[in-house]
Deep mutational scan, measured.
Amino acid sequence: SLNIVTVTLNMERHHFLGISIVGQSNDRGDGGIYIGSIMKGGAVAADGRIEPGDMLLQVNDVNFENMSNDDAVRVLREIVSQTGPISLTVAKC
């Protein structure tokens, strides 16, 4: 069973999320979106629970499971540009 973790980040303390995301597209185009790298000083690094290779399932109320990489990057950028905490739900691989 997948270990699902939801992390809520206070964006007032850390001014950027600090992750890159990578799409693992397979033949069907539904390989999922994964955490690529984590930048020091960002909210994700400070929290420490999300790691490279984790699968990104949801951000706030947006489901990322069947999203293309381009869409995921765009949607994540829109969410980060808003104010307030950000909740990331990942599956630990």
Results as ranks from 00 to 15, higher is better:
Leu17Lys: 01
Met11Val: 13
Thr6Ile: 09
Gly18His: 00
Gly53Asp: 15
Asp54Arg: 00
Glu78Arg: 09
Gly84Ser: 10
Val80Gly: 15
Asp54Leu: 01
Cys93Phe: 03
Ile79His: 04
Val22Thr: 12
Asn3Phe: 03
Leu2Trp: 09
Asn3Gln: 02
Gly23Pro: 15
Ile79Leu: 12
Lys92Met: 02
Asn3Cys: 02
Thr83Trp: 02
Ser1Trp: 02
Val5Ile: 14
Gln58Gly: 06
Ser87Glu: 15
Gly84Ala: 07
Val5Trp: 09
Arg13Thr: 10
Asn69Ala: 12
Gly31Val: 07
Asp61Ala: 12
His14Gln: 13
Asp70Arg: 09
Gly84Glu: 15
Leu76Asn: 01
Arg13Pro: 10
Thr6Trp: 03
Met67Lys: 11
Leu56Trp: 00
Val5Ala: 09
Arg74Met: 14
Met67Phe: 09
Gly23Arg: 11
Ile4Arg: 04
Lys92Leu: 02
Arg74Leu: 12
Val75Gly: 11
Asp70Cys: 08
Ala91Arg: 05
Gln82Met: 13
Asn3Ser: 04
Val90His: 01
Met39Ile: 13
Met55Tyr: 12
Thr83Gly: 03
Ser1Cys: 07
Ile4Gln: 04
Asn3Lys: 04
Met67Gln: 05
Leu57Asp: 00
Gly31Gln: 04
Val7Tyr: 12
Thr8Gly: 06
Ser87Ile: 05
Asp61Met: 10
Leu2Met: 11
Asn60Gly: 11
Val73Gly: 13
Leu17Trp: 00
Asp71Gly: 05
Asp70Lys: 05
Cys93Ile: 01
Asn63Val: 07
Val73Leu: 08
Asp54His: 01
Gly84Trp: 03
Pro85Ile: 14
Thr83Cys: 13
Thr83Lys: 12
Val90Tyr: 01
Ala72Trp: 00
Asp61Phe: 02
Met55Phe: 10
Ile35Met: 15
Met55Gly: 05
Cys93Pro: 04
Thr8Met: 10
Gly31Met: 13
Ala72Thr: 02
Arg74Trp: 03
Arg74Phe: 04
Val62Gln: 09
Ile79Lys: 04
Gly18Cys: 00
Ile86Pro: 00
Asn66Cys: 06
Ser68Phe: 12
Leu88Met: 14
Glu78Asp: 15
Thr8Ile: 07
Arg13Lys: 14
Gln82Cys: 15
Ala91Tyr: 04
Gly84Arg: 10
Lys92Pro: 03
Met11Asn: 08
Leu2Lys: 13
Leu9Glu: 01
Met11Trp: 05
Asp30Tyr: 04
Gly36Asp: 11
Asp30Gln: 11
Ala72Val: 04
Val73Pro: 14
Leu88Lys: 00
Ser68Pro: 05
Arg13Val: 06
Asn10Asp: 14
Phe64Trp: 01
Ser68Gly: 08
Asp61Cys: 06
Val59Pro: 01
Glu78Cys: 09
Val7Cys: 11
Thr6Gly: 04
Glu12Trp: 04
Asn63Glu: 11
Val90Gly: 00
Ile4Ser: 06
Met11Gly: 03
Val59Phe: 02
Phe64Gln: 00
